[in-house]
Design a protein around this nucleic acid. Sequence first.
DNA 1: TTTCAAAATTTGTGATCACATTCTAGTGGT
DNA 2: ACCACTAGAATGTGATCACAAATTTTGAAA
Lengths: 223, 223
Amino acid sequence: MKMALEFSPPQEEFRTTQERVYFQVRDAILRGKFLPGHAITIRGLAAELNCSPMPVREALRRLTSERALELSDTRRVTVPTMTPEKLAEICAARVALECQAAEQALPFVGKGEFEQLRELDGRVTAALQQKNIEQYVTANLDFHFTLYRLGRPHIILSLIESLWLQTAPLQHLVFQRFGVQELPDRHEDLLEGMADGDVGRVRQAIRQDIEEGLGSISAEELH
Amino acid sequence: MKMALEFSPPQEEFRTTQERVYFQVRDAILRGKFLPGHAITIRGLAAELNCSPMPVREALRRLTSERALELSDTRRVTVPTMTPEKLAEICAARVALECQAAEQALPFVGKGEFEQLRELDGRVTAALQQKNIEQYVTANLDFHFTLYRLGRPHIILSLIESLWLQTAPLQHLVFQRFGVQELPDRHEDLLEGMADGDVGRVRQAIRQDIEEGLGSISAEELH
DNA sequence: TTTCAAAATTTGTGATCACATTCTAGTGGT
DNA sequence: ACCACTAGAATGTGATCACAAATTTTGAAA
């Protein structure tokens, strides 16, 4: 079965095929093109992405070690299914790391950066009003990571990215079923806290944004 | 060049060669068998571990994505060198995650678990008195991870493991040069906090243990 | 129609090969 | 002695193949 348009064409130029495949699959996961539980085959992906199984193997191995994909007991690569325990852990880890990243970013929030974040938040709000799932996901991701990147974190950022990757398939599942209109977001609190340079308020806003966002998911049945 | 005894024989039985190689290399890094900056070759490892380059490629790719190894701009796999920025980030991330893990473990610390932790701490102290680097590293690792594992974390634990892997090469370098006798540890505080069920004290002890431990490293020149 | 075992296909793993790039001596010139 | 340069060796990447294990399909019996 040929699944057209499942993967976007590679945006940038990559040095190796393996790297290209890695980002294409990663992107597809973030955009919700894979359902939890879906099994992925090396040869199938290789055929779709026009390369030999070799680069696919390495890309999948990499994504598996980031827990974006999962290795079944029969060595098959699948999109992970979520459990309440995993969700609670991801939630706790995101709070811990994203609070740290935000705090680290705070000194770098100047006037220009603040305006940029306000503009990105505007896009999130607009997407929520229009009930545009695709746009909401992209804008929300941009908002958070633009903030976190200000503190120039490398290690922490990649840990956070790994955590977002893990919730992406479930998140899209829930959005497609229940929409995004009722999603709370604490971006306003966050922006005010940043304007005041109030670390405590920023951390609190991040915590609530994450816990309420993932809480609204866990409230629904977990597939 | 044949480097004998660099790798321990595989302890358990692994399902695949790739997995065996992964844990052997991982173990070697944790035990300080690799110096920062050291370049690793796929074929060289394959010859030492008696397999084809293929499983080694995948194992190295996996370790690279965990930041235990690094990909140079010429695609060569090397043991990462530390920078003050990276060390600060690792320190912050460890504090955030290990405090969370400890808090999560706290309700599971019964009498038996407490005694086990006291016994492990005793080994750490003994190793420090004897200035036995190898034993200190092992005992300290056992102490921390035995505690964290009580809360049955999966995701957070693997993040913490990745962070420990990243500091291992530098840590061994410093230990070999300056010894371990002056290393502070906050395990006493930690144990008392746990006995009282005092979350705040536990978190504070973890924070200090990490910051003082890594601080004593950053105080020395970073290679 | 349903059930279940055997056959056929598909899959992951590991080995080997080809090729372009990178690294390493060794050479020659200053 | 020192440095730039070239030839040879070594390395990473990607393709292809062989094989065992897992999956799916098939077909016959109930």
